[in-house]
Amino acid sequence: MDFGLFAQHTMNGLMLGMMYALVAVGFTLFFGVLDVIKFSHGDVLTVGAFTALATFVGLKSMGVASTTVELLAMLIAAIGAMAVLGAVIAKAFVLPLRAAPALNTLLITLMLGTVLREAVRLFYPDGANPKPFPRLLPAESVSIGNFNLRLDNTIMLAAGVLVIVGLQLMLNRTKLGLAIRAVAQDEETAKTMGVNFSAIVLITFAIGSALAAFAGLMNGLYYNEINFGIGLYLGVVGFSAAIIGGLGSIYGAILGGFMFAALQTIGAVALPFASAYKDVFAFAVVIVLMAWRPTGLIPEKLSERV
């Protein structure tokens, strides 16, 4: 393979990996503080992407022409609304189920995800069909041989890196981060230190859901099209990424996200069958990995329970 093609696939893999990592980090955060799997996470991403799109349509109808204003408004609306939605889901459906088996939380969020997805399909105007998503980032590109480095992709990738670095700094350097990590390690002792447990859970769900909204917006800007099913797929991939990384570990989730994208890219490009099989290949490797390392590549919480 020549350099240009290789670089193109690498760039595509990095973009996918960033989206997967952002979704996986959400799963791992939720599991960290509450030991629950929240299956509506992917559909929150969908709602976030559609919130961004609706914001764009709204601004257009109001005659706003500046792409910077549009983009900022979409970012703020999607992230803000999904943060609130995440906190509401935690408050209404996850925290009240604390005393029940974890399976109930899984089931109720699975159903909630279906409700969100169907609501987008039924209530967003013509929501059953794929919707074009505006191209708002500068589309200039630099050609290096066969490789076409696009400015918009570079911006998105850089923004994703900034978000992840920001999250890390928040978790490791701030008092809020200290409280989140304390709750993840030992909920009861954290409470005994004076941490407002419910508030930390709500904030964590808000943060995770905001990350999903960011990934949703990225998805729209990258493919210039969204549909009501994107979150279902990204949710399954993000969840798998969080599991192979080691549920509860932030680094593991990031690693898992990029690894899954790498597997897909390899499956699409380097293997001797059609690229339609890339997911079959990637998930098959995930299954093998899980059989080999049941607690994930960077085990965090599960190993402590042994």
């Binding site: 008092k175 200290l178 304390a182 390690q185 030992d186 954290a190 005994t192 004076g194 941490v195």
Partner: peptide, 18 residues
Amino acid sequence: RVFAKFSVEENLRMGAYQ
């Protein structure tokens, strides 16, 4: 019940959380 994955100082800071 120390926080095993926190440093000594992070543990102490947790004590003064409020």
